[in-house]
Design a protein around this nucleic acid. Structure first.
Length: 272
DNA sequence: AGTGCGACCCGAACGC
DNA sequence: TGCGTTCGGGTCGCAC
């Protein structure tokens, strides 16, 4: 499940391996994952090259000479580098072949990921990019910014932190971890969250994501073959998936309740 | 406008 | 053993 840390790791890893190789062919085995016109998608990629890879929230932005290829991994999307002669395996939906007979292959068990090819000048008006809120670590992400965004929200803070238009990049796992770090009850209405709690949320998001990126960077070895790319950051999780286990701060049993249909793990004592 | 929820997917985990 | 059922993840789109 790629969270932002894995998206960032993928970005850094691929950047070392695919830049400036001419694209020779593009094959699409699952058309629904391409949001733009399929024919144009292929035609515009073939003959071009990737010159940089950027990221905005959980979106990967592959820069070409005249276009950007936007890619969202959702839950299970992965990129692999393989030789063009390698057999195409199940769940490989998009294959980009370079002129040195290597492939960039997009693999997605659940077919939730999406790709979109846009003209460069359209990046800032592309909705999925436009809508992204501030990234953890951005100096503009202040308690005042959050208080302003939260003030009319009756929804639980848990739900609001998953809203990518406010803070971009937090998924279910990190929101659970961030709220534990900040000692905030996930059911608390966002409009009631205090300035001090906002500060703790900002600090927690920054620290947790930074650490996860470091772990991801040391864990993901290769995209050429094996699917085993699980990050070591899982060992660092303090509440997520720890239902019934003792809280690492107070020893109380970690609870798991649904909020907005999503599993929410928290310590009922530390997060009153 | 803000909110709630099903749909999209399919493998793993679970219940019988 | 082998069925059927439930769950999980992020995001969108529709209904209220």
């Amino acid at each position: 499940m790629p969270e932002i840390a894995e998206v960032e790791t993928v970005r850094r890893t691929l950047k070392k391996q695919i830049l400036h190789k001419r694209i020779k062919d593009v094959k699409i085995y699952y058309e629904k994952m391409i949001e733009s016109d399929i024919k144009t998608f292929k035609n515009d990629l073939i003959g071009d090259e990737f010159i940089d890879i950027k990221r905005r929230g959980k979106w990967l932005i592959f820069e070409l000479n005249k276009h950007y290829l936007l890619s969202h991994l959702r839950m299970e999307g992965k990129f692999f580098l393989k030789n063009s002669s390698d057999e195409v395996v199940k769940h490989e939906h998009v294959i980009i072949t370079f002129n040195d007979d290597t492939d960039l292959r997009y693999h997605d068990t659940r077919k939730f990921g999406r790709m979109n090819l846009i003209k460069k000048e359209d990046l800032e008006k592309t909705e999925c990019i436009l809508k992204q809120g501030l990234e953890p670590g951005d100096k503009n992400l202040t308690p005042e910014y959050l208080l302003n965004k939260f003030k009319n929200k009756k929804l639980p803070i848990k739900t609001v932190l998953l809203d990518q238009t406010i803070i971009s990049g937090l998924g279910n796992i990190y929101v659970n971890e961030v709220l534990f770090y900040a000692k905030v009850n996930p059911f608390k209405k966002a409009s009631l969250v205090t300035k001090e709690e906002c500060l703790a949320i900002i600090k927690g998001a920054d620290e947790i994501i930074k650490e996860a990126i470091e772990m991801g960077g040391t864990t993901i070895k290769s995209y050429t073959s094996s699917l085993g790319v699980t990050g070591r950051f899982q060992q660092k999780l303090k509440v997520h998936k720890r239902e019934g286990e003792p809280c690492l701060k107070c020893g109380a049993k970690i609870a798991n309740q649904k909020i907005g249909g999503r599993s929410t793990y928290f310590c009922p004592i530390c997060q009153k």
